Computed example of a mutant assay.
Amino acid sequence: MSQTTAARGFDHYFVPEPSTYPLFGSVALLLFGAGAALWLNDVPSGPWIFLAGVAVLIYMLFGWFGQVVRESESGRYGWRVGKSFRWSMGWFIFSEVMFFAAFFGALFYARVLSVPWLASGDNEALLWQGFSSAWPTAGPYTPSGAEAFTPMGAWGIPAINTLILLTSGATLTWAHHGLRAERRGQLKLGLLLTIALGLVFLGLQIYEYGHAYAELNLRLDSGIYGTTFYLLTGFHGLHVTVGVIMLTVMLGRALAGHFSPQRHFGFEAAAWYWHFVDVVWLILFVVVYLL
C-alpha cells in the first residue's frame, strides 16, 4: 500500500465487517439473567444456565476485543475512529459517575433527611423507643431492642487502602510517561506495580469485611448504615476488580509489543478508568469513613 493510499485510509472512518459478536452478547445476557432468576428461585438448572451465560460472555469479550486489537495494530484505525473511542470512553465514565452519584445520593438522603425526620416529633413511634437521629443509626429492631454494632473506623485498613490507591495512580502515571518516552521497561514495571497495588487493595478490603462481620457485628442488614456501607464499598471494590483486569490486559499487550507514543488509546482508556476509581475512593473515604 502506498503512503498516499495509507493516508487516505487513515483519514476516512473505518467500517468493520459484519460481526456475529453482538448476537453472542445477546445470548449471553439472556442466559445470564434467566440463570440468575432461576438460581434465586432454587431451580436446579439455574446455576448451570447462569454459568453458561458467563462462559458465552467471556467468549464474546475475548473475541470482540481481540478483533478490535488486531484491527488497531494493523493500522486500520484513523484519527476519526480514535476520536469516537475517546468520546465513547468519556460517556462510559460519565455513566459510572452517575452510577455512584445515585448511591451517594441515597446515603445523603438517609443521613441528612430521612433519619432526622424519623427521629423528630411523633415520628419516633414509627420505629422504637429511644431512636435518635445520631449517625450511624442503631441498626435493625429486634424484640430485645436495637441490635448493636460498631461502625467501621477510618484509620486503619481504610486509610491504608487510600494510600495504596493514591500510590497506584502515581505508578500508572509513571508507566504512561514511560510509554510516551519510549521506555518500555518503565511502562511494564509501572503497570505491574499498579496491578499489584490493586490486588493488595482488594485483599485488604476482603479482610476488612471479615473483620466487620466477625468482630464489629456490622452486616449488610445492620440498618441503613450497613446497607449503604456495603453498597458503596462493595461496588467500588467491583470497579477496582474490573480496573485490575483492564490493566492486566494492557500489561499483556505491552509485553506483546503493542502501543506506541503516538497510538495507545487502549492504555489511556484503562488509565482513565483507574483514575476515576481513585477519585471515587477518595470521596467514599471522606463521606463513608470520616464523616
Rank of each mutant, 00 (worst) to 15 (best):
residue 87 W to S: 11
residue 67 Q to G: 14
residue 93 I to G: 03
residue 23 L to C: 11
residue 27 V to N: 05
residue 29 L to E: 04
residue 90 G to Q: 11
residue 83 K to D: 11
residue 59 Y to E: 03
residue 84 S to N: 08
residue 77 Y to S: 01
residue 76 R to M: 05
residue 33 G to N: 05
residue 90 G to V: 13
residue 88 S to K: 05
residue 28 A to K: 07
residue 82 G to R: 08
residue 88 S to V: 11
residue 66 G to V: 06
residue 73 E to A: 10
residue 70 R to Y: 07
residue 34 A to K: 00
residue 80 R to D: 02
residue 55 A to Y: 09
residue 33 G to P: 00
residue 77 Y to P: 05
residue 77 Y to C: 07
residue 73 E to M: 08
residue 47 P to W: 06
residue 87 W to K: 09
residue 30 L to Y: 01
residue 62 F to Q: 12
residue 84 S to G: 02
residue 28 A to M: 12
residue 57 L to G: 04
residue 42 D to N: 10
residue 48 W to D: 00
residue 29 L to M: 12
residue 95 S to Y: 08
residue 85 F to Y: 11
residue 55 A to S: 15
residue 39 W to P: 00
residue 83 K to Y: 14
residue 80 R to H: 04
residue 32 F to I: 10
residue 28 A to V: 15
residue 26 S to R: 08
residue 35 G to R: 07
residue 46 G to W: 00
residue 85 F to E: 12
residue 44 P to V: 00
residue 46 G to Y: 01
residue 63 G to L: 02
residue 56 V to L: 06
residue 63 G to E: 01
residue 54 V to R: 08
residue 93 I to Q: 06
residue 21 Y to T: 10
residue 92 F to T: 12
residue 89 M to V: 12
residue 75 G to A: 06
residue 22 P to Y: 14
residue 87 W to H: 15
residue 40 L to W: 01
residue 42 D to L: 02
residue 69 V to G: 06
residue 56 V to I: 07
residue 83 K to E: 11
residue 32 F to T: 09
